[in-house]
Design a protein around this nucleic acid. Sequence first.
DNA 1: AAGTAAACTGTCAAGTTAGACAGTAAACTA
DNA 2: TAGTTTACTGTCTAACTTGACAGTTTACTT
Lengths: 196, 196
Amino acid sequence: MGRPSVQDQRKKEVLDAFMTCVALYGVEGATLEHIAAEAGLKRPLIRHHLGNRKAMVLALGEHIADTLSSQSEMLRVALEDHPGVRNLIEALFNSDGELDPRINICYQALVNSVENYPELRKPLLDSMETFYKVAINIVLASHPNADKQACEIVAHGIVNLFITTDAFIPLKPPKTWGYSSYFAALKLAETLETKS
Amino acid sequence: MGRPSVQDQRKKEVLDAFMTCVALYGVEGATLEHIAAEAGLKRPLIRHHLGNRKAMVLALGEHIADTLSSQSEMLRVALEDHPGVRNLIEALFNSDGELDPRINICYQALVNSVENYPELRKPLLDSMETFYKVAINIVLASHPNADKQACEIVAHGIVNLFITTDAFIPLKPPKTWGYSSYFAALKLAETLETKS
DNA sequence: AAGTAAACTGTCAAGTTAGACAGTAAACTA
DNA sequence: TAGTTTACTGTCTAACTTGACAGTTTACTT
């Protein structure tokens, strides 16, 4: 049967290194050399595992989408026993390093490359949609009497506020920026309380 | 006195082309060839006007920061006679093409490059701060009796919701995404009404 | 121990990119 | 018209980047 394949594992490692480089240099700036150095491998190995550049970018798109989707699932499971909008907000804003900020940065970089790699659009769109869906369901579950549309809007808003906060991380902004988004999310959540 | 200088004008044109390319290919992916083609000039001219690559990136940082600041000023002036949070939200979300979405995309790309170009941090931080300040003052002006901190939070929230909406534009998302941010911003604004 | 399938390495060729600089053309002044 | 300043072009070099592929090593099977 020959040497055992570590392709699945290696692929993940390389994609992780790719993710780091895209976050730092942008999609086209993440060269094979950068990725190889980051992954601790020789350059030709990158190609061996992920194929040529286009295949790599598309694989990264799938990877980011999968990661976002599985993070959504983790969020859903984590809040299954402790529902409540409040807990959703805490999970998003006060998850100390549990949610990898590279994913958001990388996601944005890929979004901006959709024109060059149209195949990226669907996975990116779908994975964000599931993220929103999870948030919406959490909000709906904790406010069964509230207006359905209002819940969707609040959920979208909370997620979007989180996204912006995450996007500013490389800037090392004053803490007030993060706090404001956090409190704005809480305010949004409160709009459901008063109506119920 | 020799041939009249068009440097100021050309510089702006080249920076505009640079902005377009960064939005499309990322900071490191925006090559001189791309920029030259976009600007309709020969490659060496880019260098003539903006200097080497590092100088170009820093110049773009200043340019984006200046543009953001002047857009903030325009917003301030436009809403001077028609204050009100509602009008702020309309101006942000329903400005049909008046606010260039490339600026936001480019801003994000530059934020992610702060580690490679540390000098970018200050202008990016300062210009976003003035954007927030303008929004805060508009909110404060229309709700003089409301809690000051609440106004700041709402203003931050509205701006951040707008930023996320703008960031998704290259994805061509379903209209509901944009609407949700818009309505979430309105809901945030309403939290001030009920308390006054 | 021989066979084998996969991971891994070394290296070359083609294309692209940034940087540098000499030189030309254009638009003004005296 | 001569001089001057600036915009602009052509072109060379060095470095970088991707793609390709032959060859080696590793780890498992029979």
